[in-house]
């Protein structure tokens, strides 16, 4: 009698402790996430919006497998535990063609659906695809440096370091390169990331839904100051954007090739800077820096630029 009472109270204790632990875990998660921004699930740009939908669909499809797995796992483990003598014991049971067909077949179907979704979405959300819009796009050239980001507005001859001001509801067409080890340009609220690599120009497009401030980072380590490479994307109204351009054109900082070379030296904690661009075709020079054999620092003022725009494009490179 006493033994089974002890057993019962031990079982009760187990249930209570596990529930408390479970509650504590859930509580800890709630406490730590309350009020924090989740840009991947709560995006603010047309591209990231579509990526969020994609993520939710994938989870939904995955749940079709995961939930049955958990239910079966616990139900079967509980029912056929050694203490339960009522359950049938069939030690020679070695398989079931029907069940095999089910669990080869259903995941196959789910993956087939997901595969179709993948094919469609991968093409639709190809970072090299331009965003269709009646508004004219704003071009921005991005250069990853050690350990800051340089943004060049080639049509406006403005450049910034560590911040990007953009007009809302306007497609932003980014060309991305690096003058540093491999980096990854990522603004989760607006779009997924793309690698920034020397001697190459990758592409990305995004469009902010509304005015706001969105954080960006470099998702690939490039040395000591990698974690310093966060930057702000400020989406403002179109009028505010023109004002900002106008104001910036009065910036005392000039970005020539020489000032660029100084900027490109490794440094941490640069903060935000604004430049008027005086150097010609800076972005292409930076890309071409890595295309020439041997010589690296001299800008090329000849017409190599056309060659660059066609040849350095990363689209379709089958690697």
């Amino acid at each position: 009698m006493r033994n089974s009472k002890k057993r019962v109270s031990w079982r009760v204790a187990q249930v209570v402790i596990s529930s408390l632990v479970g509650l504590a875990i859930v509580g800890a998660f709630v406490w730590a996430t309350q009020g924090r921004d989740m840009p991947v699930l709560n995006p603010k740009g047309i591209i990231a919006d579509q990526q969020q939908v994609l993520i939710l669909i994938t989870v939904g499809l995955g749940v079709f497998v995961v939930v049955p797995v958990f239910i079966l796992l616990f139900a079967i483990a509980f029912r056929y535990r050694v203490g339960n003598t009522k359950a049938k014991y069939d030690p020679e049971l070695e398989g079931s063609k029907v069940l095999e067909a089910v669990w080869w077949g259903i995941p196959l179907i789910i993956i087939l659906i997901l595969a179709i979704i993948t094919a469609i979405s991968t093409h639709a959300l190809d970072p090299y695809k331009k965003i269709e819009s009646s508004t004219a796009p704003v071009k921005v050239q991005v250069v990853a440096l050690q350990w800051k980001w340089l943004f060049i507005y080639p049509d406006q001859d403005i450049a910034t370091v560590n911040y990007l001001t953009i007009p809302d509801n306007t497609p932003i067409e980014l060309s991305i390169t690096a003058d540093a080890p491999m980096n990854s340009f990522w603004v989760p609220a607006l779009a997924g990331q793309v690698y920034a690599m020397t001697g190459m120009s990758t592409k990305l497009s995004f469009m902010a839904d509304a005015p706001g401030e969105y954080r960006g980072a470099s998702a690939n380590i490039s040395g000591e100051g990698s974690a310093d490479m966060s930057f702000m994307v400020r989406s403002v109204s179109k009028t505010d954007f023109s004002h900002w351009l106008y104001k910036s054109s009065y910036s005392p900082n000039m970005l020539s090739w020489d000032t660029y070379e100084k900027l490109a030296q490794p440094s941490r904690g640069d903060g935000e800077k604004t430049y008027v661009v005086t150097g010609k075709d800076l972005y292409n020079q930076i890309v071409m820096k890595y295309m020439d054999s041997g010589s690296s620092s001299q800008p090329h003022t000849n017409t190599q630029t056309d060659h660059t725009m066609n040849g350095m494009d990363m689209s379709g490179m089958g690697m």
């Binding site: 991947v40 990231a48 579509q50 990526q51 994609l54 993520i55 994938t58 989870v59 499809l61 995955g62 997901l114 979704i117 993948t118 979405s121 991968t122 639709a124 959300l125 970072p127 990854s184 989760p188 779009a191 997924g192 990331q193 793309v194 998702a219 690939n220």
Partner: peptide, 14 residues
């Protein structure tokens, strides 16, 4: 599986 979808992976990678 969530990350195997390339366009979604752009938001998860690294």
């Amino acid at each position: 599986v969530m990350m195997s979808v390339p366009a979604a992976d752009f938001q998860f990678h690294n």
